[in-house]
């Protein structure tokens, strides 16, 4: 076991890790930040996406020791300090972009990265960027709408199309 320290959601946090400890397990079990989820074991589903030094990565395929010292943002660090939802989070609620909520943290983290890279994506760009995130509930329809809305683009209201 080795002590691993990272800046997580703006605060220095430490927990033990074996060589094989994955970043996602370090966050969930070491820091009890359980908002980051594990949906698969083949780097396919995206439920575990966090921002590592500002870039989205799949925390199930990164070793905790390897990124000792890094800055990590998880879903718990996206809302404002006063609890105000980010534009992406708020749009997901406004446009019913989530149902069971399990893929949601990864979706929000991915969408947040997308809008940082591309502030006004087209529908096709949104769909393409989310290629590494599987949602089984929504058919993606309202997720795509939510991301478009979060970028400030006009989107038909929910349940009024």
């Amino acid at each position: 076991m080795t002590k691993v320290t990272m800046i997580v959601n703006g605060k220095s946090r430490s927990a033990e890790a074996e060589g094989r400890t994955l970043l996602v397990d370090w966050l969930r079990e070491g820091l009890r930040l359980t908002g980051t989820h594990v949906g698969c074991d083949t780097t396919q589903c995206g439920a575990c996406i966090v921002h590592l030094n500002g870039e989205p990565v799949k925390a199930c395929s990164v070793l905790a020791q390897e990124v000792d010292g890094a800055e990590v943002t998880t879903i718990e660090g996206i809302a404002g300090a006063d609890g105000t939802l980010s534009a992406v989070q708020q749009a997901f609620q406004d446009y019913h972009g989530l149902q069971c909520g399990f893929c949601t943290p990864g979706m929000v983290m991915a969408a947040t990265s997308l809008l940082r890279e591309n502030p006004r994506p087209s529908e096709a760009e949104v769909r393409h960027y989310l290629e590494g995130n599987i949602c089984r509930c929504t058919g993606y329809h309202n997720i795509v709408k939510a991301v478009m809305a979060a970028s400030g683009q006009d989107v038909p209201a929910v349940a009024a199309e």
Binding site: I75, G83, Q93, H96, G101
Partner: peptide, 23 residues
């Protein structure tokens, strides 16, 4: 009516409590 879902806030902020979150 179509009020916003009240459960969404916890899911969107990582505060959902799924079985694997129980230790």
């Amino acid at each position: 009516a179509s009020p916003k879902r009240r459960e969404d806030v916890r899911f969107l902020t990582g505060k959902g409590r799924y079985t694997d979150d129980i230790n």
